[in-house]
Design a protein around this nucleic acid. Structure first.
Length: 252
DNA sequence: AAGACACGCAACCGCAAACAA
DNA sequence: ATTGTTTGCGGTTGCGTGTCT
């Protein structure tokens, strides 16, 4: 199987109607994240189409995310989802994986379902790269020693015990700026773990609701602007206008 | 310093199940 | 009941990076 090694850019006119493959660029991540955060998922194929660039109150459809729905789903599930744990798998989790694999077999999605914040892909990769190897090594050693047992070897030192969990280098770092129509607003920046983003938005939402109630309790006409941008790639003053952004509050 | 090698992980593919028309 | 579409899953590939020689 041949996979293109390069970042799949966005807005590449030469490849205008081709479906993109390969690594996701931060810009694509931003669009997908924003799309799903605002509008949720009806079907994954529609997510890919709707995640166009939103600019100056217009949906610029020639910047559609040219990804398959399948690819969007995979990216969201394995990487962008806010509830994902970003720290390395701990010793305790490794024991859980071993135990669940023993009872469930290679049903990685079933195993992942029992491990909040972990994805099937992550668990599968972990199993294939470390545990299976360790078991094989233990098996080989046992056979050399005349012992046919293939029980997993006890885990060696756990790197996660020693060092604080690093943020994966490839994970996009999002910033967010929220402004109201009167020019006031808040902004924050953080890693794309999503938790910080979500909690901040939720807090703002709560205060927003109370403000709305205080001013009559009806639908506020106040304009809100919300943007997620990758601080490594975009200038901090990039601002994306989101028509109907108030709807997004209902999602979170 | 540079090439070889090993490893981790993101993302692809094919297939099957679920669902809609 | 049939057909087409979408989603979800597991296996696999190959790039990027760190380590070794």
């Amino acid at each position: 199987m041949a996979r293109k090694p390069i970042h799949a850019g966005v807005g590449d006119e030469g490849e205008a109607n081709k479906e993109r493959k390969g690594l996701w660029s931060p810009e694509e991540d931003e669009r997908l994240f924003t799309q799903i955060t605002y509008h949720g998922v009806s079907t994954w194929s529609s997510v890919a189409q709707l995640a166009g660039k939103i600019l100056n109150f217009e949906l610029v459809t020639d910047f559609w995310l040219r990804r398959s729905g399948k690819s969007c789903r995979l990216r969201w599930m394995n990487y962008l989802r806010p509830d994902l744990k970003k720290e390395p798998i701990s010793k305790r989790e490794e024991e859980t994986i071993i135990s669940l694999q023993r009872s469930l077999g290679n049903r990685w999605s079933a195993i992942a379902a029992r491990m909040p914040g972990r994805t099937d892909n992550e668990i599968k990769n972990y199993w294939n790269s470390r545990i299976r190897k360790r078991r094989n090594a233990a098996g080989n050693k046992a056979s050399r020693d005349g012992d046919s047992s293939t029980e997993p070897a006890p885990a060696e030192e756990d790197p996660t015990d020693a060092a604080p969990a690093p943020i994966p280098s490839r994970f996009p770092v999002f910033g967010c700026q929220l402004l109201d129509g009167a020019g006031g607003g808040i902004s924050f920046a953080g890693s794309g773990s999503g938790e910080s983003i979500q909690s901040t938005i939720t807090q703002q939402n709560a205060s927003d609701e109370s403000e709305a109630e205080a001013s009559g309790g009806g639908q506020s006409n106040m304009l809100h602007f919300l943007s997620f941008f990758d601080q490594d790639y975009y200038p901090a003053d990039l601002l994306v206008d989101v028509p109907g952004a108030m709807d997004a509050w209902e999602i979170i």
